[in-house]
Design a protein around this nucleic acid. Structure first.
Length: 566
RNA sequence: CGGAGUGUAGCGCAGUUUGGUAGCGUACCUGCUUUGGGAGCAGGGGGUCGAAGGUUCGAAUCCUUUCACUCCGACCA
């Protein structure tokens, strides 16, 4: 493509609203532009990158035996009522009405639609397994879109769904998809981790996320320095911790106006790990709300996703003072013993049958010392956030936190949707069974930004070979000189001839420095500069990543590029 | 959804306190010069000042309402 005939509006100034490198550079270099909150247009360069990523995803999925389809973007609301997700998805699902006042939604994901597609069309175990996917627009009405393409409302996602006659076969496919995803992200040149994850609103049992490691990541990832254990903080586990405790006589002590763990432990001269902290939340269920207490060790923090899962709530929100008092709780003095009758509570599993602890007395200005926790497993659940420096539950190594951008998520769904929607097949014994399902997602447009978050410098984008909009960027130093222009065009034609995708900067009105800056901003892997050395029959080849250059003869330009691009 | 802020030329901004002819930089167009790190000079085009209502002889500026966008937080498969 000739620059002079393309549409690549680069700008000198960084957009004020963009805070992240990916957001700034993608706008500045003319890849995308913003149309509204969380809504982006892809201009020619951006579209090319998107298509390259899409092509790699498709190639690897097809190789793994998946079948591409395309579902309607707008789906009837009834479809979501059938599975019970109409209420569970909440406001993220954008609802619209047609002229007849019928209700529709802009699809945020497609489990229901895909189950419906297969239902009554695949009816025998002989036709299983099957894995269907699409790469299509999704819409989620995010409460607060931000970070450019990383958290937009409209985005391009690959979503795949597999159907099986047994859990074992679904797990085989799950492992195949993990391997396929690893190949895809490796081809894109990304440094990533596969982590254990929470399944969230999709549901199901086993779930793994693929995270591109980058400072700007929204998720906290727990990694081990001794083995390859990695998990999202929402699902991370740790090894058992040992604590020294002092002997305490069971007693009630006055603790006037001391409501925090820090104050109480200092006042009683007891380490925070010998105290029990009560975190009070309001749990929201589909038809009601309830105040709930989570007890964790004084030096631990509550992990809200774990807590939410422990009581099967839709979500947890902070409880107000009035709400806490209304159910008879004394904020700052809540303890396990003597709770008002009927109070819902959970205790962290690390406190199971713990002895000699300190916690609130459920009475203002009093705490209890020498408390033992109850011997009833149903009261316990994993509730705490793994901290940096904790031990690994697999190998005993040290755990630390890092930030990741979630670019893929694979789920072992089971029969959650097939049962709800009565999507069944006949097995070898002629018995009717619901499909066992897996579901697999990749954020395709998010990857465009994730690649730049991981690969940029202060001057602009640095695309990896397989994601770059073009392979080579020819810069004609002064396109008003016929000699330079002709030499540039000859190299351009020769590169095209051997299948190398090339952008030829033939703009006559721009000077050398301007074009160099555009090259560095756009971030194509290599530039060929046709300029002052041309009279000696020499051009420069610059590698974008290192910004180092070598000189080669005009004749060797094409073959050198072929070697470098492999 | 809570808190804060911003809407003025394609983009980045000043002007609003104290009402009085719509500004600057950049980009764009024309011409001349320049030509390896975002060129110089000269000339030029481009605006319902986010929208609606109000006060006033007169509103970008004051008042009311509303919409949009951004940031912090909550939330986020």
């Amino acid at each position: 493509m000739k620059f002079s005939q393309s549409f690549i509006p680069t700008t000198k100034e960084t957009p004020a609203e963009a805070t992240l490198p990916s957001h700034q550079f993608l706008i500045q270099a003319g890849f995308i532009n913003q149309e509204g909150a969380g809504l982006y247009n892809f201009m020619p360069l951006g579209k090319r990158v998107l298509d390259k990523i899409r092509a790699i995803v498709k190639e690897e999925l097809d190789r793994a035996g998946c079948l591409e389809v395309q579902l309607g973007f707008i789906t009837p609301l009834e479809l979501w009522e059938e599975s019970g997700r109409a209420s569970k998805m909440g406001l993220e699902m954008l609802r619209i009405k047609d002229r007849k006042q019928n209700n529709y939604v802009l699809s945020p994901t497609n489990e229901e639609a895909m189950v419906k597609l297969v239902k009554n069309r695949i009816t025998s175990y002989k036709d299983l397994p099957i894995n269907l996917y699409q790469i299509h627009t999704k819409f989620r009405d995010e409460a607060r879109p931000r970070f450019g393409l990383l958290r937009g409302r409209e985005f391009l996602m690959k979503d795949g769904y597999s159907f099986h006659d047994s859990t074992e076969d679904m797990q085989r496919e799950f492992a195949l998809m993990e391997a396929t995803y690893r190949t895809i992200f490796t081809r894109l040149g990304l440094e990533f981790r596969v982590v254990d994850a929470d399944s969230g609103a999709i549901g199901g049992s086993g779930s793994k996320e693929f995270h591109v490691l980058a400072k700007s990541g929204e998720d906290t990832i727990v990694v081990c320095d001794g083995c390859d254990y990695a998990a999202n903080i929402e699902a991370a586990l740790r090894g058992i911790k040992q604590y020294n405790k002092q002997a305490l006589e069971k007693s009630k002590v006055e603790t006037p106006n001391l409501t925090t763990i820090e104050e109480v432990s200092k006042f009683l001269n007891i380490e925070a790990h010998q105290t029990i902290k009560a975190v009070i939340k309001k749990a929201i269920y589909e038809t009601q709300t309830q105040i709930v207490i989570f007890f964790v060790r004084g030096n631990d923090e509550l992990e809200e996703t774990k807590a939410c899962n422990a009581i099967n709530a839709l979500e947890l929100v902070d409880a107000t003072h009035e709400e806490i008092e209304a159910v008879g709780l004394k904020a700052g003095y809540v303890g396990i013993e003597g709770l008002p009758h009927g109070t819902l509570y959970k205790i962290d599993k690390e406190l199971y049958c713990e002895t000699n602890m300190v916690c609130g007395a459920n009475e203002v200005n009093y705490h209890l010392m020498g408390i033992d926790t109850p011997n009833d497993e149903t009261l316990y659940a994993d509730l705490i956030a793994v901290q940096e420096g904790d031990g690994c539950s697999c190998c005993g190594g040290t755990l630390s936190h890092t930030k990741g951008i979630e670019v893929g998520h694979i789920f072992q769904l089971g029969t959650k949707y097939s049962s709800a929607m009565k999507a069944e097949f006949l097995d070898a014994n002629g018995k009717s069974k619901p499909f066992v399902m897996g579901t697999y997602g990749i954020g395709v447009s998010r990857l465009v930004a994730a690649i730049i978050e991981q690969h940029h410098d202060e001057k602009g984008c640095i695309w990896s070979k397989e994601s770059a909009p073009y392979d080579v960027h020819i810069i004609i130093s002064n396109a008003k000189k016929d000699q330079e222009l002709e030499a540039g065009e000859r190299i351009y034609e020769a590169l095209k001839e051997v299948g190398i995708q090339t952008l030829l900067d033939d703009r006559a009105k721009e000077r050398f420095g301007f074009k160099m800056n555009d090259f560095e901003l756009i971030g194509i892997p290599y530039a060929i500069v046709v300029g002052k050395k041309l009279e000696q029959g020499v051009v420069e080849i610059i590698e974008r990543k290192s910004l180092t250059s070598i000189e080669v003869s005009l004749e060797r330009a094409v073959s050198t590029m072929q070697e470098k691009l492999g």
